[in-house]
Amino acid sequence: MSMPIIVIGAGVGGLTIAALLSTEGHKVRVLEKSSKLGGRTASVKFRNHILDNGFHIMPFYKKSAIFTVLKKLKIDSNLILAKVNDIAFYSTCGFHGYPKGILDLLRLSLLPFKSRVKLLRILFPLAFTSLEKTELWDDVPLTDITKNLDFDTNAFFESVCMLAFADTADHISLGEFTRT
């Protein structure tokens, strides 16, 4: 057996390389200075909740580098993901389920009724736009259609953009948004 390979740091980077070396038959030893794994992704437990170190997201997970690695190691099924049904927005008056259709949107207690109607007016035509047409909107910023919205409706758009793209609406094109 060859000498063990020492990997310094048990962040996603160090653990990924260590796992890949392990699969090739190398003996690895990961040395981590803190008491936890994960580095910048380390979470903490607080009053029965798990708090992430800031806002993290894996958009387009099945195309991501980490998915490719987990799949290569045949451990992708060990990372169980939350189902869309379990996602909720939280405001001071409680949890509000993520809307998955027209009726859900109309029922979205998070927003004033007026905002829900405004959202319907925007999202309904987008949902039926052809792929070719969306490509013409790749240089149009999403904010072109959201800039005149009231605070609540705009905040909803921003949180959806964060969830789906891990970015703010001003960095997303209308074309990209419509296709997603």
Binding site: G38, I50, L163, A164, T180
Partner: peptide, 23 residues
């Protein structure tokens, strides 16, 4: 992966670990 537009339905999965925490 989550669908942003509710009219296209929430598809399969949102890439957030089910037991919480990206670690």
């Amino acid at each position: 992966m989550i669908r942003a537009n509710p009219f296209k339905g929430g598809t399969s999965e949102f890439a957030y670990p089910d037991n919480g925490g990206y670690d």
